[in-house]
C-alpha cells in the first residue's frame, strides 16, 4: 500500500470512511497458525464463540477453517477445543 503524505491525509488523525478497519489485515501479526483436523472436529463451535477476532469460518453452520487475513494466532481456539482438533504451528513452516 502506498503511504500518503501529510498534505494528503485528513487532519488530526480523523478517519473519514466508516468501517475501513476491514482493510487492515491484522493476520500479518501472526506467528503461530491454527490448523484444523476436520476428522477429529465435532462441530461444537466452541472455537467460534471464543475467537476474539471472528476469524472462525463457518459453512452451513459447521466449522470449516480460519480467516487468515485477520487471525492473529492467539491460540485460544486450540486451547479451548474439547477434542483438541486444532494445533498451532509456527508461521515460518508455511513460508
Amino acid at each position: 500500500m502506498k503511504l500518503m503524505t501529510w498534505q494528503e491525509i485528513p487532519i488530526g488523525g480523523l478517519i473519514l470512511e466508516a468501517g475501513n478497519a476491514k482493510k487492515f489485515l491484522t493476520g500479518d501479526w501472526r506467528s503461530q497458525r491454527p490448523i484444523l483436523d476436520e476428522e477429529k472436529c465435532i462441530n461444537c463451535l466452541t472455537c467460534f464463540m471464543v475467537c476474539p477476532d471472528g476469524s472462525i469460518v463457518l459453512k452451513d453452520g459447521k466449522m470449516s477453517g480460519f480467516n487468515y487475513d485477520y487471525c492473529k494466532g492467539c491460540g485460544i481456539c486450540a486451547y479451548e477445543c474439547p477434542v483438541k482438533c486444532i494445533t498451532m504451528k509456527p508461521e515460518e513452516d508455511f513460508r
Partner: peptide
C-alpha cells in the same frame, strides 16, 4: 502515520 499528523499540526 503519527509523524505526518504531527507535521500537519
Amino acid at each position: 502515520y503519527y509523524m505526518e499528523h504531527k507535521r500537519q499540526q
